[in-house]
Amino acid sequence: MDKANKIIVGISVGDINGIGIEIILKTFEDKRMLDFCTPVLFASNKLISYHKKTLRLNTSIHGITSLDKLVHGKVNLLNSWKEEVKVDLGKTTEEGGKFALKSLQAAVGALKKNQIDLIVTAPINKENIQSEEFKFPGHTEYLEENFDGRSLMILMTNELRIGLITGHIPVSKVAETITPELIKSKVEIMYNSLKQDFNISKPKIAVLGLNPHCGDNGIIGTEDDEIIRPTITEIKETGKLVFGPYAADGFFGSKTYKQFDGVLAMYHDQGLAPFKALSFGNGVNFTAGLSKVRTSPDHGTGFDIAGKNNANPTSFKEALFTSLQIFKNRKEYQELTKNALKAK
């Protein structure tokens, strides 16, 4: 790829006491990764040097003071703060959340200005990052606030994509949150994403039920018959290939998910528990529905193994490659649809 056409990937480093920096450094130990993109880390030289020394990693890092000094063929590090940072590997600290947010804010700011093409986010701790500037359950909601669109969290591998009708909310709030409008909105986001981000011309989507056995004709709850099933019927009438509701246990147990391009789960653990059981460590979290591309690995901060050089970078690598492919697919789709409109 021509250096001028290299995709510039912004990377937020996540919680400074977790495994985020380790998986980033391990990913770019292999210099062949730089054939695919030009990475920019948003952190500080001292912080990255501390992790390199502690982990005995030799990843070559090129420090820059502004993004117009970016160098292709190198792992760029934009110095995003000047403060001294106290690192307590494996511990949840106020500092860990403070600088995770600084890194994320710097990356998002650069993405808004089109100085980078997309972002890959290393894991944050949802508790210590909370502040006056960050009052969100996670990355997904923060990014939705900062970029145009309605978001949909999709956990994915090559053969499984699971989106969530409801996201980071208590289980006690799930049933009252599910409405025909919400289901229609999430189906629409997944449908459009499968077309533009994954090059699937006629997406086939499965929708899971809410109650055990999809309510057993109202014996174990009425939401499936009164809300979910009629909404799916209504969506089908628009020509979309949407099917369900399916009882989640049988759906995954029988591997029915392999028959669909995308699956929509009613709540967080209904979708993520089977996903992580099937593909933990190889999956990717993709935020669909936004004007910009964002992915992340499918795991958390890994405090229990932080600083031990045991973190596996596979999921982060997958997140990186997935973001590049989605960026290319979306660009191609936009060009094709633009040309189709001109031809009319």
Rank of each mutant, 00 (worst) to 15 (best):
K112V: 12
A110D: 02
D88I: 04
G109L: 00
V87P: 06
E144Y: 06
R150P: 02
N125M: 03
G97C: 03
G97A: 08
D117M: 09
G138E: 07
I124K: 03
L101T: 01
L118Q: 06
L118P: 09
F136T: 09
E95S: 09
A106T: 13
L111R: 00
F99I: 05
A110Y: 08
P123H: 06
E141Q: 09
V120T: 11
V108I: 13
E141Y: 01
Q105I: 00
G109Q: 11
D148E: 14
G97N: 02
K102S: 00
A122R: 03
T121C: 15
F147R: 02
S151H: 12
A107P: 11
T93M: 02
N128F: 04
V87W: 03
L111P: 04
E144R: 06
D117E: 10
D117G: 10
K126H: 11
F134T: 04
K86Q: 03
Y142H: 05
V85G: 06
E127A: 13
K98F: 10
I116G: 04
L118A: 05
E145M: 10
I129P: 03
N125G: 10
K98R: 15
L152N: 05
K82I: 06
V85K: 02
D148P: 02
L155D: 06
Q115T: 08
G96Y: 07
K112D: 15
M153A: 12
D148F: 01
P137D: 09
E145I: 05
E94L: 11
I116T: 01
G97S: 08
G109T: 07
R150I: 02
F99Y: 15
P137F: 11
K135D: 14
G138F: 13
A122S: 12
F99G: 00
I119E: 08
F147W: 01
A122H: 05
L155A: 15
E84N: 07
S131D: 03
H139Y: 13
K112N: 13
L104Q: 08
E127W: 07
